[in-house]
Nucleic acid binder design. Structure first.
Length: 735
DNA sequence: AGCACGCCGACT
DNA sequence: GTCGGCGTGCTC
């Protein structure tokens, strides 16, 4: 009786495929979690064994044998597979693709883990060979000369920098005996028992002490915590103490951060405290580095893994604790393909793995606040700022009837001047890059719009370009109106580039640094600018959201937010939450050390209730009122959502398809509301038409049952073939 | 997603 | 007479 293996294959099909054992195979068992090479149609694909069974629903004559077993022992254990299966089910995404996403790219190839990184080196004969003797083989000559110029063995990744197909040529050099393959077994880091401290931490305040004690008591079982602490309240020290305890029990720790940019700071804190290896895992690494870290974690040989969203599935057999820092950050939610939310997956990982998880933030998401209130998460509060720093004063600046200069009110201009006069630094936020968001013709009213998107082009004055910030389309700035020929083209509104220009004329001789995606092109530039701020060369700092995260400016005593209103009156119900988080975050940038800070918020709506609760009672008061509004409106977290998106080059296809689905949903169940379909906020993007259908329900199980059924139903609709469509469970923004 | 097969327009 | 457009169907 042959065994049947159920295998997840990286194709967008929501099912597993059955295979028979490899032909002429030895008797070594093939266990779930092992990668295998399988024939799939005409191709050979790397799949992953999920389970085995004595029988198959597929007729025996259609079953094909596994071509090759790639892993003699599984790379994923039962717990890993359980989490991945849960994620595939919850996000309604094909298990094969979920599994593929859990492996680093180098393990999605048909090689064993030991061979995944292959090195090549010259033999003695190869070193002795004179390349120029290869007169009739220019490619061989070139490759040999290149190899001789390298210091030692080279990895495939380095050969790829040649940008031509070196594989064939290299094979010839190998056949001639000039080059040898050196599979380098990945170094196996020694398992570090326990923990050795480089240095002990500072004494804890009573709140930190209580937080550490609460989580430490939960080590060894599942429990979720919300660690709520303002900037500078010592969250990191709590993390360090908890890591220490987990390490002392011989367990591994997974710490997730929203962005690559934040990893070095935390990494440095970890390394100065613990004398154990700390692995980094994020998209900024090379594939070889990612593979090494992944395998070390998978072998239990990496005590601490610090990573971004993509690290959440990394196997860690001795996992004892999960930390999610800045848990409210939108970067944890993937915005394309497999749209997972790494924070939510991490909570499930902790639950399945029986370990505690700590979600840290000064401004927790309303979902998390809600969970804490319901008692699902235990709330731990850190309210004291370290070093006796005074909290900043936050004031509203009423913009109504004010004379604005480049979007700056007289009150803000005065405050900046005063701050500079006292030799202190000021920080201004404007969430719009470029010179001006609109170019309009004063002669006929023509407005520069993107040809492929429903969006205005943005003026970039310095480079004399018009750019679409949605699709990246880029063209020369016209000198006359393309419609009427008038030469009176006027930029409307403010971007950071224009505000920078105006600030330079207001404050001549003052060091000004602008930080946005246009001014920070290369890595290292941000660090240089931040250095200028720290050493005082830059007194005035202007930037987009890039500036809000993770940087400390001790001498900044004034923060101005130029335009707060966008967050108050958005179609997106989460805009207010994001605005409140931004305000609290930037307020945390001001007035550290001995100088109290001031935060000025420019608004046309100084009476807005959410601004008031935020100013009077802080983020907690805001969260209470915002949650009350969400509850009254039946919005998340008081209901659950899934968004169906459709896009096609043909205009009506997405609407027709989603309309059909909406009607089907309404017939199917009264428990799920279908809102729409409606055109996406930007219906046309990069030449494609986009519509969406929002599904909402007070009952999560009912929503998921319906989605399951909907996916099977949609497969049968002819209209489905005319567009690309996808499901987004728990959509973060409705775009 | 790939990758085939299949059935109708502009070229050697 | 062929090359090639992308519709539709399938992958254990």
């Amino acid at each position: 009786m042959p065994t049947i293996f159920r295998i997840a294959v990286p194709v967008p099909l929501p099912r597993l495929f059955d295979y028979t054992p490899p032909r002429g195979g030895d008797d070594a068992p093939i266990l779930p979690g092992s990668r295998v090479l399988v024939p799939f149609g005409r191709r050979q694909l790397v799949g992953c064994v999920v389970s085995s069974s004595p029988v198959s629903d597929v007729p025996a004559e259609r079953l094909r044998p596994i071509s090759r077993v790639l892993d003699s022992r599984p790379l994923l254990d039962g717990g890993d597979l359980r989490l991945l299966r849960w994620a595939a089910e919850y996000y309604h995404y094909p298990l094969g693709e979920v599994l593929a996403a859990a492996f680093p790219v180098l393990l999605r190839r048909a090689r064993s883990a030991e061979e995944a990184v292959r090195r090549y080196g010259l033999t003695d004969a190869g070193r002795a060979q004179v390349p120029d003797e290869l007169k009739r083989a220019p490619r061989q000559r070139q490759l040999l000369a290149w190899l001789q110029a390298q210091a030692g063995d080279v990895e495939e990744e380095l050969l790829d920098s040649l940008e031509w197909d070196w594989r064939q040529v290299l094979r010839i050099l190998c056949d001639k005996g000039w080059v040898a393959v050196r599979d380098c077994p990945l170094e196996q880091p020694a398992v570090v028992p326990g923990v050795s401290l480089h240095k002990p931490g500072p004494a804890l305040n009573p709140e930190q002490d209580a937080a550490v004690a609460a989580v430490a008591a939960a080590l060894g079982g599942f429990k979720a915590f919300l660690l709520e602490g303002v900037t500078g309240s010592g969250k990191t020290e709590v993390y360090l103490r908890l890591i220490q305890q987990a390490l002392e029990q011989g367990r591994q720790v997974l710490a997730l951060l929203p962005e690559i940019a934040l990893t070095p700071q935390l990494e440095a804190r970890f390394r100065e405290r613990f004398a154990v290896p700390v692995g980094l895992f994020h998209s900024g690494l090379t594939e070889t580095e990612r593979l090494r870290v992944w395998l070390a974690a998978q072998r239990g040989a990496l005590p601490i893994l610090l990573g971004t969203r993509s690290a959440v599935f990394t196997p860690m057999p001795a996992l004892g604790l999960i930390l999610v820092d800045e848990e409210h950050d939108a970067s944890f939610k993937a915005q394309d393909g497999f749209r997972l939310h790494a924070r939510d997956v991490a909570v499930m990982r902790a639950r399945l793995g029986g370990v505690p998880i700590v979600l840290g933030s000064a401004t927790p998401s309303l979902e998390t606040v809600h969970n804490a209130r319901r008692g699902r998460y235990q709330r731990l509060q850190l309210s004291k700022r370290a070093g006796e720093a005074l909290p900043p004063r936050v004031r509203l600046v009423d913009l109504r009837n004010q004379r604005l200069e480049a979007g700056l009110s007289p009150a803000l201009r005065g405050a900046v001047a005063e701050t500079l006069a006292q030799g202190e630094q000021a920080l201004l936020f404007l969430n719009r890059r470029g010179y001006a968001p609109v170019l309009i013709c004063h002669g006929c009213g023509w407005v520069a719009r993107c040809r492929r998107c429903d969006a205005n082009d943005v003026v970039h004055a310095k480079q004399q370009r018009l750019r679409c910030h949605h699709c990246g389309a880029d063209q020369a700035l016209p000198s006359v109106c393309p419609d009427c020929g008038s030469d009176d083209l006027r930029p409307l509104g403010q971007g950071t580039e224009r505000v920078e220009q105006v600030l330079r004329s207001f404050y001549p001789g003052v060091g000004l640094a602008r930080v946005d995606r246009d001014s920070i092109r290369h890595k290292g530039e941000l660090e240089r600018i931040l250095d200028d701020v720290h050493n005082g060369k830059a007194q005035l700092l202007l930037g987009t959201q890039m500036l809000a995260k993770g940087h400390h400016f001790p001498n900044v005593t004034l923060v101005g937010v130029l335009d707060v209103d966008g967050g108050l009156f958005s179609v997106d119900f989460r805009a207010g939450e994001r605005l409140a988080q931004l305000i609290v975050q930037v307020a945390g940038r001001a007035g550290r050390g001995d100088k109290p800070g001031t935060v000025l918020l420019q608004t046309h709506h100084p009476e807005h209730p959410l601004l008031h609760s935020l100013l009077r009672e802080g983020y907690a008061g805001f969260a209470r009122d915002a949650l009350a509004e969400r509850q009254a409106a039946g919005l998340p977290p008081f209901s659950h959502q899934a968004l169906l998106r459709g896009e096609a080059t043909e205009r009506s296809a997405p609407q027709v398809f989603l309309q059909e689905l909406a009607e089907w949903v309404r017939r199917e169940t009264p428990e799920v509301f279908a809102l729409g379909p409606a055109p996406a906020p930007r219906e046309r993007l990069a030449g494609r038409y986009r519509w969406q259908l929002l599904l909402q329900s007070g009952n999560r199980a009912a929503l998921h049952r319906l989605l399951e059924k909907l996916l099977r139903h949609a497969e049968t609709l002819p209209a489905a073939a005319k567009l690309r469509w996808s499901v987004d469970v728990d959509p973060a923004d409705l775009y």
